[in-house]
Design a protein around this nucleic acid. Structure first.
Lengths: 229, 229
DNA sequence: ATTACTTAGTGTAAAAATTACACACTATAT
DNA sequence: ATATAGTGTGTAATTTTTACACTAAGTAAT
């Protein structure tokens, strides 16, 4: 904010907690570093913010480079700026989370040189993370726990057409607790943002469930009214 | 996150929305700039983050320099990083809000050179703000609106001993709507975090109300259980 | 001491939301 | 035809939320 901007040896980066759901588990995308510091450690994907990039753009770019995906729901949630969080200098990092529906195995692209590999790992069994990335992850999970109670973000983790059981499963994974089936259905349908389709689940070896779709239009109309779980 | 940190011409700053409550109105502290760009405009107080300062420290310092106050509740809530938000270069700013009980007029110190004056202005009648500070303020207000519903932050705006009417007043100002007196009292006391004192309000020309105190101990015990307004 | 004024403090009934809980149905696979 | 696995549904009890109005207490002015 000073008139003449002092030149400080400072860098900002973005680190992303990419949450993915494959129908069974909640996972995050981690990369195995190929460079010091923390060579061979697992870390959150991140990068330096380019000089003409907005923060959101930068986050989208990181995601795109690793997964080839665009148009994914991302949200900035905190800045981590401990002076010593990076051993090689002052790096303030802005944390983003993303919510991604995983289907097949096409959500990974060849990694760039600073990583040996990238992998979706289940959050129930994460390795030790480089830098302060555990803290960043923890806060990210906390954020989506809070947010899923009030905003329709669960749908971002599901395919466009989904069953109520799948939806419930997402809530249970994120909130970390079991929910009652009947009560869940009563509540989620009472919001009036689900459109029941004339279509059934396919490829299951038991009674197929009805498919639903999230109705963005109806949701937009609700604006102002809080959803609450 | 790269091994060799590239040297980018980048700066991070902190901007603060200091909310103050004087018993009547909700105000924020603004400074009138004395330098280009935006000379003579009102702006949120802010500063560059020092090289060895943590973000929280930096925010506390800004607050201290303007008000002489320490130990104030502050919270980082968003990073604003549009490449063109600052006309003189890339400045990513981290926004903090603070909640301050105003009493008397001692919450202002002589301003430093980059400001002509600093002043507490009621949020009901704010001037045009420099840079993207209107956006920063808007998001800050939105954040405390959300937070006051779930966390005991209203007490930060009140003196240690307060009446239930004063507390209700704070909620009404932050939420921007009237609340029912009986329902408010029922709810706020049901949380069990208020300690009723053996003491009455003083200096009023009508029936004095009972004073209460926020009981941090009891609140700590509630941990996990969500308060909800 | 009377009166006028101003805010404090209190209860209830109706409506709405939440919780706890179990079984019959349907599609598939063998 | 039978076994299997998940779908889909209702109700009663409890809790929470909402709407609503008057008396009590203290101060100030006369």
């Amino acid at each position: 904010m000073e008139q003449i901007l002092p030149h400080l040896d400072s860098v900002f980066s973005i680190d992303c907690v990419l949450f993915g759901f494959d129908g069974k588990e909640l996972k995050i995308l981690l990369i195995e570093r190929n460079e010091e510091p923390f060579k061979d450690w697992w870390a959150l994907p991140g990068n330096i913010v380019g000089p003409d990039e907005s923060l959101d753009q930068s986050a989208s770019r990181i995601l795109y480079e690793l997964t080839g995906l665009r148009g994914i729901y991302m949200e900035q949630y905190y800045a981590f700026g401990d002076p010593h969080r990076h051993p090689q200098g002052r790096v303030i990092t802005l944390a983003y989370y993303a919510l991604i529906r995983l289907g097949g195995d096409k959500e990974l692209r060849p990694v760039s040189n600073y990583a040996k590999q990238a992998n979706w790992l289940p959050i129930s069994d994460l390795p030790k993370l480089a830098f302060d990335h555990q803290k960043i992850y923890d806060k990210g999970l906390e954020k989506i726990k809070r947010r899923i109670k009030h905003q329709p973000i669960a749908f971002e983790l599901l395919p466009e057409k989904f069953t109520l059981t799948q939806l419930q499963h997402v809530y249970e994974l994120v909130l970390g607790k079991k929910l009652d089936k009947r009560n869940f259905r009563k509540k989620i349908t009472s919001f009036g943002v689900l459109k029941e389709l004339d279509e059934k689940q396919k490829g299951v070896s038991y009674r197929a469930a009805t498919l639903y779709r999230f109705d963005k239009r109806k949701y937009a109309k609700l604006f102002g009214k809080e959803i609450s779980f």
